[in-house]
Write a protein that binds this DNA or RNA. Structure first.
Lengths: 247, 247
DNA sequence: AAGTGGTCTAGACCACCGA
DNA sequence: CGGTGGTCTAGACCACTTA
């Protein structure tokens, strides 16, 4: 099995060589062979493993990189993507922290363990009644509450957060998930809609009941495609703003 | 100047060969050497012209293709992109025509030539007072008006539309711009926000004054990067829905 | 200096399209 | 069939990072 090893069993007959290799590498990553943030073997090594020329192996890598699955760093190596950039992924939908340079703050209003209601279960892809951690979080700017977040986390996975005082939590949740729970958010889908605030929610935001709000429903997924967080963010509709480029 | 012709004058010193070639090709397209929808020379011809290997030329082409600038069709050739897919680019933001299979209709409510107000001029990137064609268009579904569009078109360019009875207009505007005015929309930017309807606009949509609305402000650009259309679309906020994937 | 990914070459062969 | 773009090879050399 030295030189003519090549593809052992074609995963899909109609697939080009580089696409097959990309699929194989993807599978190996999902199987946990290399974890998020870790380096893959060098191109040379992988090319030898798969019995193809370097250029072909590189095409496979480029494919995976273009899909955001791996990250290639010149002179250092190729790495499994560690997760979404720690950045303020959410606030970008709202005029939040623009200009003044003021620091946004966040506060956990409530935390409770409970069986998943139907809607939450559906979003997380778990069974109704499975245990989840439900959080209510208020994000403020300059002392003004701006965004209300309702977050649901599947529970065996996020048990650590149920046991840690919320005062010790980090401001950025996704890096915290990675460090404390070993959960790496790799992809998220946001659904944007519109509605009005009920009295309880409006009170948190300092608005009148019935005030129009923008609603961003997010589902966050890890590398394996499991939904690991369901989050609904509500904010004043008039402060909502988003830009899309169509090509 | 046969074999060692190569790059005549490097456009940017720090640029790789393929990036330089991509830039050069881009410039030739913008200069009008090949119009939208037309074929570029074959890879072989272009590689010879630039004095590089086919693989390098191909990298340049792949770059341009990934940017949506050209379209490569196996066995046929490489073409300058003709414009945005004729599709219902706009309605995708609204629940509009879902399910029932009913046919959306559109009607031009008003058309008038006028000097550009400041806001319109800013969006189109022209001077205040330059002549524009301003349209008001109502899009309906099942007899129900759903979207109100305010469209501004710079005027020397779209004169044909000022002279053609609106009854003869096509339903899809972008293909019509291409056929009748020689304007190919290649890229568009949408800004999404929420607001409320004033009495006049609400009346067109059959809603009450002050009703919450979603507002999509679009700027459409041609290949050369000129803004050729400024469009504001208003619709019932409760019918608004959009999905974004973050990676 | 050794190891990584990035660029480039000069070919070969294949898959697709149209006359 | 001839011409197009798509895949693949087996090299060479360059640029960047780390130690």
């Amino acid at each position: 099995m030295a030189s003519a090893a090549a593809v052992p069993l074609a995963p899909e007959p109609g697939l080009s060589r580089y696409a097959a290799i990309a699929a194989a590498l993807r599978a190996r990553v999902l199987a946990g062979e290399w974890g998020p943030g870790q380096a893959l073997p060098s191109e040379q090594a992988l090319a030898a493993q798969h019995g193809v020329a370097m250029a072909t192996l590189r095409r496979a890598m480029e494919l995976l990189a273009s899909q955001g699955f791996i990250e290639r760093i010149h002179g250092r190596g190729t790495f499994v993507r560690a997760g979404l950039s720690a950045a303020p992924m959410l606030m970008r939908f709202f005029r939040f922290g623009d200009g003044s340079g003021e620091v946004p703050t966040s506060r956990i209003v409530s935390r409770r363990k409970s069986p998943a209601p139907a809607e939450v279960a559906r979003r997380l892809g778990i069974a109704r009644g499975d245990p989840v951690l439900q959080l209510l979080r208020l994000r403020s700017l300059g002392g003004q509450p701006r965004l209300l977040e309702e977050i649901a986390l599947p529970l065996p996975l996020f048990q650590v957060l149920a046991d840690t005082p919320t005062a010790e939590w980090d401001d950025l949740f996704y890096p915290m998930y990675a460090q404390r729970c070993g959960v790496h958010v790799q992809r998220a889908v946001d659904e944007i809609g519109f509605g009005t605030l009920n009295a309880a929610r409006a009170a948190h935001l300092g608005l009148a009941a019935g005030h129009p709000c923008a609603r961003v429903v997010r589902r966050a997924y890890d590398l394996a495609g499991r939904c690991v967080e369901a989050r609904t963010t509500l904010g004043d509709a008039h402060a909502f703003h988003y830009e899309v480029t169509i090509t």
